[in-house]
Amino acid sequence: MSSGVEHTDTHAEGGFDAGELIIGHVSNSSSEHPILHLPTILGIDFSVTKHVLMLWIVATLVFIAITWTVRRYLRQENPVPTGFMNVIEAVVQFIRDSIVLPNVGKKYLFTWTPLILTFFFFIISANAIGLIPIFDVVGAINRFILGGSAHDHGLVNNLLHGGATATGNYNVTAGLATITFFAIIFAGSKTHGFIQHWKNIVPSGFAWPIYVLLIPIEIISLFVRPFALTMRLAANMTGGHIAILAIISFVFIFAGVFQSAIAGIGVGVLVSVPLAVAISGLEIIVVIVQAYVFTMLSAVFIGMAINVHH
């Protein structure tokens, strides 16, 4: 994908810079000009940027939607779920029976199902809301309806520019993976005791020179697993957006290269728009698959700490 960006970048003419446009859309807004200034505590800047705003919006929406629906269902006398509760019930049953039960086992099923479900609902919502071009529409309204300039340094141009997928930010996915990392340690310690959990990390019954090799490898593996979760989710969510933007950029690149609007429109109608629509369709599948894979891998890692087979 990066080669595609470089390609479009080097061929950009007439002031159009595809690389800058793509990075501007997928990256977070500048921490120097945040949406909301908050103090720095223990060296961590708590100011609200575009991705933090999206994170809050997603978390609030998921919390309200799930809590409200489930509470309404619990209050009703008829035990048959209706509407959105049907969807929640189907998802909960699927995650519990197909992901948590086979990996974690029956004994700790209800200990770990809530965490895995929270992961799934949060990630799928963040991924899906990231597909909706909220800030692109805000930018278009600002420019073409409200008559704002493309170069002013207002809130829309500076901060709310481009799309925003909270799970496309490595810090968000690292946060989620950190929860999994501690969940693995907690699951192992709760089942086998703290000391035994660390002993379980390496297989038993080998000669001591083998452990000189195995212990460092297993310790590295311990950190590699959450790193894999972090990279995979963020890279997949960013990759799709970059692909769509690079393909849409063809319109402006061809218009610039041939000095003709017709060339740009032709490429747009014949290549860019159909391809971008196809990739958007593919992204809908990616949204579901990535949420599923994250929850599945978290359940697998937690299950490995609980059910030790050496």
Binding site: F94, S98, I99, P102, N103, I220, S221, F223, V224, R225, F227, A228, L229, M231, R232, V293, M296, L297, A299, V300, F301, M304
Partner: peptide, 23 residues
């Protein structure tokens, strides 16, 4: 569901291979 369930550990191993090399 059965296939996906069985592929979980293999999936985690393949991701670990890539992640370990990158990290």
């Amino acid at each position: 569901q059965k296939i996906v369930r069985q592929s979980g550990p293999a999936m985690s191993a393949s991701y670990s291979l890539i992640a370990a090399v990158i990290l």
